[in-house]
Design a protein around this nucleic acid. Structure first.
Lengths: 225, 225
DNA sequence: GGATCGCTGCACGGAATCTTCACGAATGAG
DNA sequence: CTCATTCGTGAAGATTCCGTGCAGCGATCC
């Protein structure tokens, strides 16, 4: 059983999808336009989103991007048949799977089930849990805990922490960090990294990120279990 | 030298690429369609794949995804010029680099070389360790141990030690050292190197760096393990 | 619209580090 | 053995680097 948001403007199809998914044991909420979808996903925090790319007055891709911004959510796109461009862009924007219209309900539920399984597996996967000392980071759910307590990290702070934790103890220069986390090509002469390091330290503890004078930063190597 | 699979349906281009990569010292295999590519990559386990996204009758992206499924392989995509969409999707699907057509062979080999280097460095020896006597240096983490005890080296001291350890026993003049470690063009008449050698010796032991009177310094050649 | 939140970069002080100087010890050629 | 070089050493500026407070700015939320 999972929480699912369906974004579809054709009422008939939307209802059909919802019915089918409900009979498959899921909780389903409907949205029929872009803003509604973004709002709904933000408030319900679903486990999966079924998103029609052809939405009136609002770019489905933009919806997808906004949905993914805070917290990555598995997305299945519904696209017009043969519209390869949409498909490509959709995947780029963060969709995980797609269905070309018309599709059968059997096919839809199969994809939903497969995607849920995939996601579940990946977040149960120890690979997606990063640890050091008393810090535990769930990459898939973008959550960090300190002594089991949830820590509220901003998107940038989270990405920074994950980047450093991915190679425990390895020292990264500010340039590397700006390139990998921010996507900057040249961020020399900026204290931006420092500011965010400070923010992370304040929230997860000062010793999680080690300063290497004259070089950059590295995560602590604390036990992985 | 590396094992490379090239997936390209235009025979002329495929042959040209293969020839160039072979002359660069690599083993090259060709595939001209999607299924062939997947099969070939599965059986040869190449170190790198050069993949044209525009394949007949089979989605290049799908190929990329299937290739990456079992075992992540570095992929360089070939895309139509200016097709930003392809680029985005390709990167999303797991490509590591891309070239827009038309490209020069020089450019291709450069990218191939760069990617191989990147991969080799990051996976082949994840912990780049240098040793001599009872000293052990972890280059990535910028840490040195003496009898297992962590030794606190400053950035310059560390770089100096690594530079000498990289070619055990090879004598370097002060000029060479200043050039390589400090980036100076001319550091004649400076005691800077001496000071840092002293600092390193004090911390890791005097016999790790040998003085060659009238010439310069060299690291000890002590056992490598 | 107004308030809040997050991102960014500057200025500043303090800390860590680098560089140089001076002088005695060591070296090696003749 | 003598002497000119070269090297090691300690300490003291000079320099660089980092942590922090803060303010501007845009985006978002209400």
């Amino acid at each position: 059983m999972a929480e699912i948001v369906v974004v579809e403007d054709e009422a008939e199809l939307a209802v059909a999808i919802a019915a089918r998914l409900r009979s498959d044991g899921h909780n389903v909420c409907l949205a029929e336009d872009g803003p509604g979808a973004v709002r709904l996903v933000g408030s319900r925090r679903p486990d999966l989103v079924v998103l029609d790319l052809m939405l009136p007055g609002f770019d489905g891709l933009e919806v997808c991007r906004q949905i993914q911004r805070d917290r990555p959510v598995p997305v299945i796109m519904l696209t017009a048949r043969g519209s390869e461009t949409d498909l490509l862009v959709g995947l780029a924007v963060g969709a995980d799977d797609y269905l070309s219209k018309p599709f059968s309900m059997r096919e839809l539920t199969a994809r939903v089930r497969a995607l849920l399984r995939r996601v579940e597996r990946s977040s149960a996967d120890p690979d997606h849990m990063l640890r050091t000392g008393d810090i535990e980071v769930d990459v898939a759910r973008r959550r960090a805990r300190r002594d089991g307590e949830l820590v509220g990290l901003t998107a940038t702070e989270f990405d920074l922490l994950v980047y450093l934790l991915l190679s425990p103890g390895v020292v990264r220069t500010r340039g590397e960090i700006l390139a990998e986390v921010w996507g900057y090509r040249d961020g020399s002469g900026s204290r931006t990294v420092d500011s965010h390091v400070r923010a992370v330290r304040r929230k997860v503890g000062a010793d999680v990120i080690r300063t290497v004078h004259g070089v950059g930063y590295a995560s602590a190597e604390g036990g992985r279990g």
